[in-house]
Design a protein around this nucleic acid. Structure first.
Lengths: 118, 118
DNA sequence: TGGTTACATCGACAGGTATCGATATAGAGA
DNA sequence: TCTCTATATCGATACCTGTCGATGTAACCA
């Protein structure tokens, strides 16, 4: 009886009473699924990877468009989904938009997946 | 420059050359996204949680149907997706089907999300 | 053999999503 | 102000997905 899939994250969003054992509530499941769904897409995984590979975990859109072989609106669409999921932040500097990893966001998701004993 | 989102898993599926730094390849992204997509659904997250909450990380379908408030075919559909993603295994004993966590599967996904330095 | 139980599969349908071209917006520079 | 560049948003479309009732299947039991 491992106590898997606990909910420890989302301190920003006022929700999610932590469950340390037993099954996951429907509300927590919905909130977590939204985040995993955001990274459950090849393009968005690559975008996260590209951002993480840059200095300061931050990248300009101009650096993200070319390697993906997708139209600019499509890339912008995926970036918006990652921002809405709380995984990236957007900062505008001049004409350029910079996307950065939200510190700890991916680690929080990792903690949920890790089995204690295993 | 963190070396995030490396690919360490899928030893069973003959694929995925490990990338320890730099951006993720399209092939790895597709394989990983398929797994994250499987857990990117509230019902499937709850199913994983229910299975993990049972002794031996194994549960009978009869124990999984009732707490979800979904039809039996729908639950069966979600379980199949989790099996296809390599996260659960199915074992038939008599009339009953038992689903169990694949050892290490979720931990491998967690490793991919974890940022080294952070 | 026939019935019952447990579960998977099928077919259909509604809603979601990834993608694109076209367009809007907004900042920089002349 | 006018233009150019960078990016977001819009509208449309094709495809995917979650859900259900109906049905198939296989094991157990009488």
């Amino acid at each position: 009886m491992t106590t898997l899939l606990t909910v420890l994250d989302q301190p920003a969003e006022l929700c999610c009473t932590p469950i340390t054992r037993d099954a996951m509530s429907a509300e927590n499941a919905a909130l977590l699924a939204a985040k995993f769904k955001a990274i459950g897409d090849p393009t968005r995984l690559r975008l996260l990877s590209l951002v993480a590979a840059h200095d300061g975990n931050e990248a300009c859109v101009c650096d993200l468009n070319e390697p993906l072989d997708l139209s600019q609106p499509t890339v912008s669409h995926h970036l918006k989904i990652l921002v809405d999921a709380g995984l990236l932040t957007r900062t505008k500097r001049g004409t350029w938009s910079f996307y950065a990893l939200v510190p700890g966001a991916l680690d929080n998701l990792a903690d949920i997946l890790r089995t204690p004993a295993s």
